[in-house]
């Protein structure tokens, strides 16, 4: 698998994360659940930035960036704050795993970038009720 394919695999995940965090944020009341709403906003912002970065990285390799899908399935019903928090944790956990794989498949600057994203994603899980683990993303 080429590096473009590896990057596009993660890009597909980031497309989904951007969509899902936006959806989960739209279902969360900023006044009733300010901490959750802020966490979702922050997650949406950081994943959007990562998506854009991945697009640039693919283009720099003369590749074609993975296109965004028409829609993405929510990990659960996501109707209550508890469900939304749990759903956000699932989305973030998937991203952590994707970056963990990307670390293994890259080198140099790309690997460094993937490692920073892996660490950030692992810590971000905590904000959605995740618990620390020995080896996040594996």
């Amino acid at each position: 698998m080429s590096t473009v394919d590896d990057l596009n695999t993660v890009l597909a995940g980031e497309h989904a994360a951007v969509y899902l965090f936006a959806t989960l944020g739209g279902r969360t009341s900023a006044s009733a659940e300010p901490t959750l709403a802020a966490g979702l906003r922050s997650a949406h912002s950081i994943h959007r930035a990562r998506r854009d970065q991945l697009v640039r990285m693919v283009l720099d390799l003369d590749g074609s960036p993975e296109a965004v899908a028409v829609g993405y399935e929510l990990p659960n019903a996501s109707r209550t704050p508890t469900q939304i928090r749990r759903g956000a944790l699932q989305v973030e956990s998937r991203c952590t795993a994707l970056y963990s794989d990307l670390v293994a498949r890259t080198q140099g600057a790309d690997r460094s970038w993937a490692m920073r994203a892996l660490v950030d994603s692992a810590v971000r899980q905590l904000g959605f009720g995740g618990l620390p683990s020995d080896l996040p993303g594996t």
């Binding site: 952590t96 963990s100 794989d101 670390v103 293994a104 498949r105 890259t106 140099g108 690997r111 460094s112 993937a114 490692m115 892996l118 660490v119 994603s121 692992a122 810590v123 899980q125 905590l126 995740g130 620390p132 683990s133 020995d134 080896l135 996040p136 993303g137 594996t138």
Partner: peptide, 22 residues
């Protein structure tokens, strides 16, 4: 992890770092 020749080792070390960060 950045200097590891093996991708598997790099992933393990990076994941350990993520666990410490958590």
């Amino acid at each position: 992890a950045g200097r590891a020749g093996s991708g598997i080792l790099a992933r393990s070390l990076a994941s350990m770092a993520a666990g410490v960060a958590q």
